[in-house]
Amino acid sequence: MKKVFPFEYTRFEKARIIGARALQIAMGAPVLIETNSKNPLDIAKDEFERGVIPITVRRRRDAFVWLQRHDLF
C-alpha cells in the first residue's frame, strides 16, 4: 500500500526553504510578490504561502511508501 505524505514539505524543509529565501531577500535578491513589508522573513513566509519561491528540496525518497507489512505473530 502506497501513501504519499499528506503534506508537501516536512516542517524542517519548510523552515529551511523560508530561511534560505529570507536570507536571499536580505542580501538583495528581487522579491517575487507585491508586498508592503520590509521584513525579509515576512516576505519569505508570504512567498512560501503563495508558492512562488523558486526553491525545492532534493529528497532521497520522494514519497512515503509502505512496501509491505507482514504480521509476524
Partner: peptide, 17 residues
C-alpha cells in the same frame, strides 16, 4: 538532522520579476 538534513535546490528560473 532536522533542518540540517535538507538539501535545497533551485528551481530553474530564467528571467526576472
Amino acid at each position: 538532522l532536522g533542518t540540517g538534513d535538507v538539501e535545497l535546490r533551485v528551481k530553474l528560473f530564467t528571467g526576472g520579476d
